[in-house]
Design a protein around this nucleic acid. Structure first.
Lengths: 351, 351
DNA sequence: ACCATCTGTGGGAGCGCTCCCACATTACCT
DNA sequence: AGGTAATGTGGGAGCGCTCCCACAGATGGT
């Protein structure tokens, strides 16, 4: 009775068309207002905005996505089991940064875990369906096929630790080289003479950079680098123990150890204790990550802090820029695709 | 040169139409196969599936969402700051359960934080845009407008702790009543005679149920319930301290305390210690939640465990059923809309 | 006075699906 | 044999938006 057959299946959310009718303008104009196009007169814009408010119009995302071929969503892909995600503050800090960067955007953030084959399979499907406009990749192993898959699908992506010096993907990293240097320089300043380094997994680019920083710091201080003082670890506690045992065997005279992670430092500490070395009196110990472990260790561990939250922020900024670049009328000069954030040495009583 | 103007903007993902052509059938038929409709002959189905595989066809979700008016996504709404989300294992357990329930579905899970006004605003927009087919609500306060908003928008929702005995929304809960009973019965079995109860916030339905369980357990054992032994707390440590002080003042002869949360028990323990009472020798102590605190307390705390992960699972099951019910050809008798899962008493040395 | 330009604006043509009606075809009764 | 009811199948008509072309009217140079 009321009208002329509005046979909608939904409860009757207002559409663009209805807003247009209400405001006495055409569909195109309403669309322009909604999307903030400048080519609308002030009077018209006001009229449309009034109609939108009166009708309580909310754009239909599905229709928009279909017509414009975009989703207004990005995914944070975590190639780890949920357990690790929750256990490590790293992820929550990163998430906070990403969330902050997204908060004044219409973009939606999806959290996708790809910790096992099943989930990876689902993720692949998901990406193939182009259900996100872009992807944030964190803690990706060197041999992970994910980055290539994204390139293949032509989906913008940003990676959190470059996999090599010439990472093809835009990336965000903390200054591993500088962080390592500052740790070693700190030990030198304390008067330490024989400084060892337990590395991370050497197939991880960041670990390589830390070794570089260690070497250069010594060299620039006029010290020779003794290869017996550099032992490969793998970021784990057990690896730290093994490496420390080797170091004590080869160079029992060492008086400082710089470990590539706090966990590794914890392993090293244990072996040092068992060997009767006091920290920091006999041996200074410095870790990397400034994790909870560092604060709770006995004695509290000096460690290199990475600005994780800022890194999250930087990643999302990079990704949004990347997405914008691929959209039609945007041929702005692609800016820097690599961001490196400074680290900070947090000095505690282990050194 | 190659063809006759396929002016797609995307890289050229195959469409339903192309699959249909390839398989030599109509669009409708392909759609039926994709959606698993039974009204397709085996031969046709095989042909279509072959075409899908050859072309690497992946349905366009936006188009589907637009045409079918659904999104194939549900949201887990957390009305807390991210910090709490990561700090409490409750959420990660719940998330695991939800994830498991979703894993053999095409549904996507969104995690939405609504910890501050800004985020709540965004959430409201999000829901108004009907960007999810359903919502999972956890840790909702009694006066939160969110549930009503969802009802208003006609969005299926499931709530994790019913707000009252006649919660209108489908809900999942653990057996607060039974959990409390088992705690008290355990204390009785240990020969305790004067059992006090520090309640939770009494505007929380679960807290009320725990009091009911406490009362009935005593009554059924032929004990009279002394109202001086029931003191209101608020789930916090400070509340536990205050309540315990009151209890000691009124009934210094008590020999057992059942607290409505582990945190509350921790507060109570402190006051008991200060009053020179030994646990469990002088006073038995039982908590609720079986949180990390319980395991790390000195002495380890006997506590009532809730099956959080199973609750997550139950919630998503309920939600999926709810969503299915609202879809066209489904007039199945709406089943039970309330699920109550059993608790388990974890006995440790505090009792 | 004329034509070239620039601003706003309207609305057609799709985007790739699902829904559903119409139409075969085949199967099963009387 | 005729009828009725399943069973499969094709394809039109949208879903609500964005894109873009066409065009009216204002503006400005010659």
């Amino acid at each position: 009775m009321a009208g002329h057959g509005t046979r909608g299946r939904s409860g009757g959310r207002p559409t663009l068309e209805q807003v247009a009718a209400r405001a006495g303008v055409g569909r195109g104009t309403v669309s322009r207002v909604i999307n903030g196009s400048p080519r609308v007169s002030d009077a018209t814009r006001a009229a449309v905005e009034a109609a939108v408010a009166e009708l309580g119009y909310v754009p239909n995302t599905a229709a928009r996505a279909l017509a414009a071929n975009r989703t207004d969503a990005v995914a944070l892909v975590v190639p780890e089991p949920e357990t690790r995600f929750f256990a490590e503050p790293y992820f929550s800090d990163m998430l906070r940064g990403v969330g902050a960067g997204l908060s004044d955007t219409e973009m939606q953030l999806l959290l996708i875990f790809a910790g096992n084959d099943r989930k990876r399979q689902r993720l692949a499907q998901y990406l193939a369906a182009h259900r996100v406009d872009g992807v944030l990749l964190v803690s990706v192993h060197a041999d992970d096929p994910l980055p290539d898959m994204l390139t293949e699908l032509d989906i913008p992506a940003v990676i959190s630790g470059p996999r090599s010096a010439d990472e093809p993907l835009p990336s965000v990293d903390s200054d591993n080289y500088g962080g390592a240097r500052s740790a070693v320089e700190h030990l030198l300043a304390q008067g330490r003479r024989t400084i060892a380094h337990i590395t991370g997994r050497m197939d991880v680019y960041g670990a390589q950079r830390r070794v570089d920083g260690y070497r250069d710091a010594l060299r620039d201080a006029g010290r020779e680098v003794d290869e017996l003082l550099v032992v490969e670890g793998d970021f784990t506690e057990e690896g730290g123990r093994r490496a420390m045992a080797r170091l004590l065997a080869h160079r029992p005279d060492l008086d400082a150890v710089f470990a590539a992670s706090d966990v590794t430092a914890a392993g090293a500490r244990q072996v040092l204790r068992e060997a009767g070395r006091r920290i920091p009196d006999d041996v200074s110990l410095v870790g990397y990550d400034d994790s909870v472990i560092a604060r709770h260790m006995e004695p509290p561990l000096t460690s290199v802090r990475q600005p994780i939250e800022e890194m999250g922020r930087a990643m999302i900024d990079l990704l949004l820029a990347e997405i914008a670049d691929r959209r039609p009328a945007s041929s702005r000069k692609p800016g820097r695709r690599q961001t490196v954030l400074p680290t900070e040495l947090v000095v505690r009583s282990s050194s």
